[in-house]
């Protein structure tokens, strides 16, 4: 696609500016690990290019006027105040630009919302303030809470790499499988958001919603609750571990043992974080 070519140019230009090249100053989406995440990034590049072109057009005129049509260089004001042709042109042209944008956007959106034919289904339930997961096909359920020690949050200990993005029980899924995620909530609204998987779905108490992802590579992907849900809204991360099918099967076996050993209840979960 053309887009990747233009992206290459943009990257080169940005990399030429020293401070932009530093990894810590990440100025783009997190590296995507699903097809959708990459489609969204491409869409974003298309829209940004349109914006840059319009930017140059509009502000080219504006800055030209600012520098050349000023009184201090002796420019005399003209008196025109309408021009029907120009006005029609700049009303109509944006329609076409927008239609050009809407087309790929619609395609991606339809793909994004197509939750049919999943390989497996996981239900994520938002609680104040942790996530509960249930593997509908496997009869596995567990809670997933923040493990960052209080000392790191309060500043008495040094913060480690995955500060605020680490949990006791991550979601484990096999690579290359379409995973459908049902979301719901126990108390107030939450949202299940993992940037690298291009998934964000509100969790609404009393109702289920669905979304999906299909991770293209193994790895650990971290996200957070994205809908204000009370005082510890910032302290209920999501960690998704994408593993090979074999590792996943082993994990399922070990989880089933665990579940039979302990009755889980949200009441006796210790909520990490503050207070």
């Amino acid at each position: 696609m053309k887009v990747s070519f233009i992206k290459a140019i943009l990257t080169t230009v940005l990399a030429a500016v020293p401070c932009f090249a530093l990894a810590a100053w990440n100025m783009d989406f997190q590296a995507g690990s699903t097809v959708l995440a990459n489609d969204i990034r491409d869409l974003h590049v298309i829209v940004m290019i349109i914006c840059v072109v319009i930017f140059i057009g509009v502000f080219g005129f504006m800055f030209y006027a600012i520098f050349k049509h000023r009184k201090s260089v002796g420019h005399k004001a003209s008196n025109f105040h309408e021009n029907t042709t120009v006005e029609i042109i700049w009303t109509v042209i944006p329609f076409f630009i927008l239609a050009g944008m809407a087309w790929p956007a619609t395609e991606t959106l339809l793909a994004m919302r197509d939750t049919s034919a999943p390989d497996m289904t996981i239900k994520a339930t938002g609680y104040q303030w942790l996530w509960g997961y249930e593997y509908l096909d496997e009869d596995i359920q567990f809670y997933s809470t923040l493990t960052t020690p209080k000392g790191q949050i309060e500043g008495t200990e040094k913060k480690t790499e995955n500060y605020l993005l680490e949990v006791d029980n991550p979601v484990v899924v096999p690579v290359g499988k379409k995973v459908r995620v049902l979301t719901t909530a126990n108390d107030v609204l939450h949202a299940w958001y993992v940037p690298a998987l291009a998934v964000k779905q509100d969790a609404v108490p009393g109702f289920i919603r669905d979304t999906w992802f299909k991770a293209e590579k193994t790895g650990v992907f971290r996200g957070q609750c994205a809908e204000l849900c009370g005082k510890q809204h910032g302290f209920m991360p999501i960690v998704v571990k994408v593993v090979t099918q074999e590792e996943y099967d082993n994990w399922v076996v070990s989880q089933k043992k665990k579940v039979s050993n302990s009755e889980l209840s949200v009441e006796n979960i210790f909520v990490a974080g503050t207070d």
């Binding site: 913060k159 940037p195 957070q224």
Partner: peptide, 14 residues
């Protein structure tokens, strides 16, 4: 773009 949610009092190191 990098995924920092709004309305959070504390954030990860990135």
């Amino acid at each position: 773009l990098a995924g920092m949610p709004r309305r959070i009092p504390d954030y990860s190191l990135q």
